[in-house]
Structures are given as C-alpha cells and as structure tokens.
C-alpha cells in the first residue's frame, strides 16, 4: 500500500491505496464516486473519463498513483449545491442523454472543450469528443448539447 493524496472535486483526499489499481477502481470502489463508469477497461470507450489537472483522461488505464498530488474532477464535482451545471442541463434538454452510461465522460470532455473554446465549431466538437463511444444517442445530439451549453454559459456569464 502507498499513501495517496490528491484533490478530488475541490476537496483534499488522503488515503492508502494499492498501487496496482487503476484510478477508476479507486474512485469507484474506495471513494464510492461511481459517476465515472467502467465500459471497456482498456482506454477504448471513454466512459471512465475524468479531468486530471483539467485534461480529459481515461481513468481505467491510469495507475492510481499517477494522480498523486494532482487535481481530479469527476462528474460529481460539476453540480453546484444540487443545481445542475449548464452543460448538464444542456445535455438533458438536447436529448443527448439516453441510458446515461457514456454521459459522465462525454460531459467532462465537453467541459474541457468549453473551457478551451467559448464557441466551438462542429469540427472541434467532433475532435474533442472522438474518444467516446455512445451506444444510444447517435452522437448528433452531442453537437446540439454543446452549442446549447455554450449559449447557457455565455448568458449566465459564468466561468465553467
């Protein structure tokens, strides 16, 4: 076991971890943050995506200790006091959520995208979301959701 310290959703975390485990398994099993999903466990589907120091990564293929000392954002950290984040609202309103298995990961990549570009083009959305498989929606709704989220964020004048 090794000491592991990081910040998750703005809160400091200190625990002992088995360094053989992936970041995803520690989030889900040790910390009970089950928002990040395990689809393939091999870096292929994007269901386990979290932001590590602001960048989308596949938490299933990252050894947990890699996140030591760093900042992690999971889907649980997005809503503010029970109020959904504009990106979450937009995904619901645009019909970009069906079974929801891919959704936490897609929304975190969308957050990275909207932090980077205020008003992303279709091409930029396609590229930044290309590491996500969705069995249900047909993907086109992701464009609408991201555009709608961009509008909402501009209206509210908030920083995502």
């Amino acid at each position: 076991m090794q000491n592991f310290a990081c910040t998750i959703n703005g809160k400091p975390v200190h625990i002992e971890v088995d360094p053989s485990k992936s970041l995803l398994d520690v989030l889900r099993k040790d910390l009970h943050l089950t928002g990040a999903k395990k689809g393939c466990g091999e870096g292929e589907c994007g269901a386990c995506t979290v932001l590590l120091d602001g960048l989308p990564v596949n938490s299933c293929i990252i050894p947990v200790m890699t996140a030591n000392g760093r900042e992690i954002l999971t889907i649980e950290g997005l809503a503010d006091n029970g109020e959904l984040h504009p990106i979450q609202e937009a995904f619901i309103e645009a019909g970009a959520v069906q079974c929801g298995f891919c959704t936490p990961g897609v929304i975190l990549s969308a957050k990275y995208l909207l932090d980077k570009y205020e008003n992303p083009t279709k091409q930029e959305i396609m590229e930044e979301l290309s590491g996500h498989l969705c069995r249900c929606t047909g993907y086109l709704q992701f464009y609408d959701a991201v555009h709608l989220a961009a509008q909402k964020i501009r209206h509210k004048g908030i920083k995502t």
């Binding site: 870096g43 590590l52 960048l55 989308p56 990564v57 596949n58 930044e128 290309s130």
Partner: peptide, 9 residues
C-alpha cells in the same frame, strides 16, 4: 494517436 484522452497522457 488514439483519442484526445490517450494523447493527453
């Protein structure tokens, strides 16, 4: 290479 998530690490 792979996807944005793979390229980031």
């Amino acid at each position: 290479v792979g996807s944005p998530q793979i390229r980031n690490i």
